[in-house]
Amino acid sequence: MKVLVAVKRVVDFNVKIRVKADGTGVETANVKMSMNPFDEIGVEEAVRLKEAGKATEVIAISLGLPQVQETIRTALAMGADRGIFVQTNVELQPLAVAKLMKAVVDKEKPEICILGKQAIDDDANQTGQMLSALLGWSQGCFASKLVINGDGTANVTREVDGGLETVTLKLPLVLTTDLRLNEPRYASLPNIMKAKKKPIETLTPEQLGVDPAPRLKTLKVGEPPKRKSGVKVKSVAELVDKLRNEAKVI
């Protein structure tokens, strides 16, 4: 059983982003970039499936500019076997990523695709569901547990608004990771060295027969309204007095 795991290169979660003055987007030049944290969890899950003898091969895929190959290398250093890089300088939106990934799935025939629940840059939370729809597969989104059953199904525990929900899904399936699925490992130095020799195949949207053009137009990116700074209170009594008599919220 092959596992395909998506890894997106995003602005590191610790960076406080800046909106560009001309309103066209967010400053990404000279900003620390990392693998989307949910995708680290995805790679970890895929590698654990291989270590448990359930998966035979783990393929990491990333789409975008040549720099995303660094993110694929990180996945390889964590234990993925090989990489696929879909090269395009078109602004990729979730539907296009899903279509490109579907074309790769048609070629590679994995049994499980693992994506992050959401990319922390666009905060879209769409791509996994869309891929699953295009493939006509089942979807286990916001997963906190994956158990492969022997009978061509898997049980997925999902984080939902009220708590947790478990579903039985028919394989092949698309999984999207939530924060509690696992704790991703750090790549060791020897594994980072080994990863340099692992192969990365480059494909283009043309080769995959997919038009990746964006469907949504971003007219403007602006700053959110700033909160005005508040005051420090000296005691609990003062706090309660302010809440009652100044803010009038209790």
Binding site: V26, I120, K217, L219, V221, G222
Partner: peptide
């Protein structure tokens, strides 16, 4: 919102 609410995007759909 995008980027954890640190930017607001105005998006048009055709």
């Amino acid at each position: 919102t995008i980027y954890a609410g640190n930017a607001l995007a105005t998006v048009q759909s055709g």
